[in-house]
Design a protein around this nucleic acid. Sequence first.
DNA 1: GGCGCTCCAATTGCATGCAGTTTGATGTCC
DNA 2: GGACATCAAACTGCATGCAATTGGAGCGCC
Lengths: 252, 252
Amino acid sequence: MAARASSKTSESSDKVSVICRALRRAIIEQALEPGAKLPEDALGERFGVSRTIARHALGQLAAEGLVELRRNRIAVVATPSWQEARDAFDIRIELERLVVRQLAGRLTRAQIAELNAHVDAEDRARGGTDAVSIRLATEFHILLAHMTNSPILVRYVSEVAYRCCLTLSLYSRPHSSECAINEHRAIISALAKGDEAKVMELMHHHLDSVANRALVAPTPQRGRDLLDILAPYADEVTSDRVVKLPKIARRG
Amino acid sequence: MAARASSKTSESSDKVSVICRALRRAIIEQALEPGAKLPEDALGERFGVSRTIARHALGQLAAEGLVELRRNRIAVVATPSWQEARDAFDIRIELERLVVRQLAGRLTRAQIAELNAHVDAEDRARGGTDAVSIRLATEFHILLAHMTNSPILVRYVSEVAYRCCLTLSLYSRPHSSECAINEHRAIISALAKGDEAKVMELMHHHLDSVANRALVAPTPQRGRDLLDILAPYADEVTSDRVVKLPKIARRG
DNA sequence: GGCGCTCCAATTGCATGCAGTTTGATGTCC
DNA sequence: GGACATCAAACTGCATGCAATTGGAGCGCC
């Protein structure tokens, strides 16, 4: 038998949740780039709801770290710094090691089939856009998390995976997902064999190399976050009135 | 020099954030017990804001797992199941191992002093109520997380620590925090020495024993979540119309 | 041309109002 | 007395309206 008894985790069908899901997907597929503006009225109009609801949705996404909310300012898609990206991956590695540790040797045949089917889908998507490949790769990890039947773990893995997904779109060079797919297959196989240590090592290595392929260097040019780049230089001044930067728009 | 450059993580001074902080504290200090009702009007009136704001705050707290939000129903303080509590602690162990791994040997004298001062405060609070002891113990861990200067890590550690705090109030027997304090001191000392492996082991053992002291057994009586207790018995029936339970109120 | 100022459209922060749902109290029937 | 229908109060889901803040276009000055 698989890990545990059933449990419901799926988001309810609030209008708020619907908008959250839509925006989340748009963000991780890079339809909305980091820094893109998200005005409340525009969202409300687009989704046929009032500003109140759009606002509430933005609040939720901000809690997940996908959106940046500054008082009295238009919300924007988050632009994680390089260091934040590295931190996210570090956390992700630990969380996902936990996932596969709990799963090793405990998967049903049906679950293994489901995982294989997902990787097949990733394979088929290789011809398509990078955005879809990245999304599918991310969803593989979330699918794994779901199989633990631990709602908390699902939530955290999903969140941090989405964040990583977002940073990939910022810092990554044209994505080569081929090796990632092979690594996914290796993980499934080790999970089926039940080799706990091996699968933890595989997952660790997999995520580490995804991170390293992407976050090769702080790449400040493409990183475009003027404020972060300037931060070390500003540290000398007393933290107020430091950055006037009147004409440099944060958004590219 | 300490871990990294500065970064701002503190919640803004929205009315929403104020209410969140207040409720969070009330919950972890058990002023609000698990299952306690949180009607929007009442909150709004109490904090001198409109229902809109109270509602938004509840949404945020629900995202953190401290509040349960069911459509068209009064929000209640979350009542984690025993299994969820165990899951939360598992995640917490991994996250906090990461924290001390990043911190080992990298703390400034000032930071070490700050940590020691906090534990002194825990010591002094030993005569007081359990609620305050638990809160201080939790805040020690959050203080550690802050010292990594990783906003993401701070957020996750805080969240999961609060959740654990909440479950302690549900399942724990009268708290004996003495050993926990000694363990805190040992962790500080190992951090100062910079013994990475040792401090990770200490933290792991510390959290594990906190969890074991608390979550001794599923203790269904005090667990009071009728629906969860009955769930396995209901699994035989086809998942709809299962629980009419007309007269058994979920709240104790 | 470049810099600063003023002012207005765009946008957020928040309260209020209305409609629909849930709760539980009362009354009715057996 | 106990189960069931009925109904009003309580509460949530959501839209709208108003005041306050922001950002940037236009304009004058150097």
